[in-house]
């Protein structure tokens, strides 16, 4: 109980900090960094549903992000609708993609799913990069000037900051509910052992597919918000492999399969990335790859459970007396 209330207090403090942040540091730069951070946390938290809790490492989540990013600008290009109207279409396309990728690969265990997601995402990127109706290599653009409220073009970055914060809150609330629900227990059990999970009646394939669909829908929504904010998407920014890799690294750095992990990962990685970008300018974009590569190596070698695991273990060292007293009670 005490742990639960302490966690609730931590979340409240974090939410308060996130709400107040742009008011305390009101510069456009800070708001932009904050928005980037929230986007990274939201997509990583969405990835975490299938990649973390269920342990099915997707390396192709860019396909969902890209579907979410392209559809709003496509409905604008085709019918001059407000881009945000494309959000539900993005989700529908993402759900269809999730089923197409998940149905055949979730019969298999291990790395087949990861490989299939890379392959499909890269295939989609290549197809989109040559498809004229989708802007080919140049990409798609939104309205240059806002035509009304629904185009969501704002003078300041502040509204988008709060939109992304709301999205992150939704993903985290869903993850929290998931953790406590039957589906969440089933996902964690099948991550540990599909064979044992099935022996207890866990419908493994259906659970994995549901998790992937949930994860895809949120990733797609994040992509849509991103495209509506930026008013522009091209194959690299919407469907590039870096988009997928960033979600994995942010989640894994903080702690995959935990509620707070993706947020912690974004809090560390995004400021770091911003620093390298400001110090090295345009030539520093290659540095992002090096940063990601280094992060992967360090996590895989030293902390496969992510930084949160490290924190828990450190806390366990200090809290040693508790379990032993329980043990003696058991013996008595």
């Amino acid at each position: 109980m005490r742990n639960a209330s302490r966690a609730a207090f931590g979340w409240l403090a974090l939410a308060a900090g996130a709400i107040v942040y742009p008011l305390v540091l009101p510069g456009a730069f800070y708001i932009d960094v904050g928005t980037t951070l929230l986007l990274a946390a939201a997509t990583a938290a969405a990835w975490n549903i299938i990649g973390g809790y269920a342990g099915q490492v997707s390396v192709g989540h860019a396909m969902f992000f890209g579907a979410g990013a392209y559809l709003p600008l496509l409905v604008y290009k085709l019918w001059q609708w407000p881009p945000i109207a494309g959000l539900p279409f993005g989700i529908v396309v993402s759900l269809v993609l999730a089923v197409l990728v998940g149905m055949p690969t979730f019969r298999l265990q291990g790395h087949y799913f990861s490989m299939a997601t890379i392959a499909v995402a890269e295939l989609i990127r290549l197809v989109v990069a040559t498809a004229e109706p989708l802007g080919a290599a140049i990409g798609l653009q939104g309205p240059a000037v806002g035509r009304g409220v629904w185009d969501l073009t704002f003078r300041s970055g502040l509204p988008y900051y709060y939109l992304f914060l709301a999205l992150l809150a939704m993903v985290l609330a869903t993850s929290w509910w998931l953790q406590r629900s039957r589906l969440g227990f089933y996902l964690r059990s099948l991550r540990a052992s599909e064979r044992a999970a099935r022996s207890l009646g866990v419908p493994v394939r259906r659970c994995k597919l549901l998790a992937l669909m949930l994860s895809a829908a949120f990733t797609s929504a994040a992509g849509s918000l991103y495209a509506v904010k930026t008013g522009f998407v091209d194959p690299e920014s919407g469907l590039g492999i870096l988009v997928s890799v960033q979600m994995i690294i942010v989640a894994a750095l903080g702690g995959a399969g935990t509620l707070f992990g993706p947020v912690l990962g974004a809090l560390i990685l995004i400021p770091l990335q911003t620093l390298t970008n400001t110090y090295f300018g345009g030539e520093g974009s290659g540095l992002t790859y090096i940063l990601y590569g280094g992060a992967i190596l360090l996590i895989a070698r030293f902390e496969p459970g992510g930084l949160l695991d490290l924190v828990y273990r450190a806390r366990g060292l200090f809290a040693k007396p508790a379990p032993s007293s329980e043990q003696s009670r058991h013996a008595a």
Binding site: F185, R188, A192, S193, S199, G201, P203
Partner: peptide, 26 residues
């Protein structure tokens, strides 16, 4: 196997397979 579990046939494994990261209660 999951249909067997639903019908009421349960089993344990020769080499125990527990869900390591979850608590005993979970």
């Amino acid at each position: 196997p999951e249909a067997h579990a639903r019908l009421g046939i349960g089993r344990t494994f020769q080499v125990p397979v527990t869900f390591e990261d979850m608590t005993i209660l979970e």
